[in-house]
């Protein structure tokens, strides 16, 4: 994640985007898209931490966009906003879109900024959790390799030992990261 969390705002109304950009640009790296299709192109070309999309847009709806984004490898924290209580869109977004929050118009700018910072924290925690998972798997594989080598010739290849120690160090570092989600402990 860069110093400023990267937020992608999606709304077919340019003046809405412009208001949001004015509100958020000091604290976030802001990208904008006027359609779901354009949003997917931006996500493919950039590291996006938070995706905040309107629900009702011509062409691809917000919940359809979230569904497509969830099929990709890098899934940002997802926020859907809308001006009306369309229960079906909420259900779709929650069930298929890994939704972080559902926001209704009009929003209070302070509340929205706070929400986006919470989303950025969520994103950092997910990144650390993903790295933790990957490193734990790597460490376990190396540990098994070491055991196999000790059981066989009884000698351990120095490179395997070095990699195992390195992996243990990274694992320890990730376990004590301030961005690690403590709720999963």
């Amino acid at each position: 994640m860069s110093a400023k969390p990267a937020v992608l705002l999606v709304d077919d109304e340019p003046d809405m985007l412009s208001s949001l950009v004015g509100l958020l640009r000091r604290e976030f790296e802001v990208h904008t898209a006027e359609s779901g299709e354009q949003a997917l192109e931006i996500i493919a070309a950039n590291e996006i931490d938070i995706l905040m999309t309107d629900q009702r847009m011509p062409g691809m709806t917000g919940s359809s966009l979230l569904q497509k984004v969830c099929e990709q490898d890098r899934v940002p924290v997802l926020i859907l906003f809308t001006g009306y209580a369309d229960i079906k869109s909420v259900v779709d977004a929650v069930n298929t879109g890994q939704l972080f929050r559902y926001v209704t118009k009009p929003w209070d700018p302070d509340d929205l900024t706070e929400l986006l910072h919470a989303a950025a924290t969520e994103r950092r925690q997910r990144v650390v959790a993903d790295r933790l998972d990957a490193e734990a798997s790597q460490c376990a594989a190396l540990g098994r390799d070491l055991v196999d080598q000790l059981r066989g010739a009884g000698d351990v290849a120095p490179i395997t030992l070095e990699r195992f120690v390195g992996s243990c160090d990274r694992l320890a570092e990730l376990c004590t990261s301030p961005d690690r989600d403590k709720t999963g402990e």
Binding site: M16, Y84, D108
Partner: peptide, 24 residues
């Protein structure tokens, strides 16, 4: 659905302008 959406956009724009004036 259209009127809900369009009018809530009006509310959002109105609120944005109020916030910009130090009002809510």
């Amino acid at each position: 659905s259209f009127l809900r959406h369009r009018l809530s956009g009006v509310l959002q724009r109105g609120c944005d302008r109020l916030f910009g004036r130090g009002q809510k």
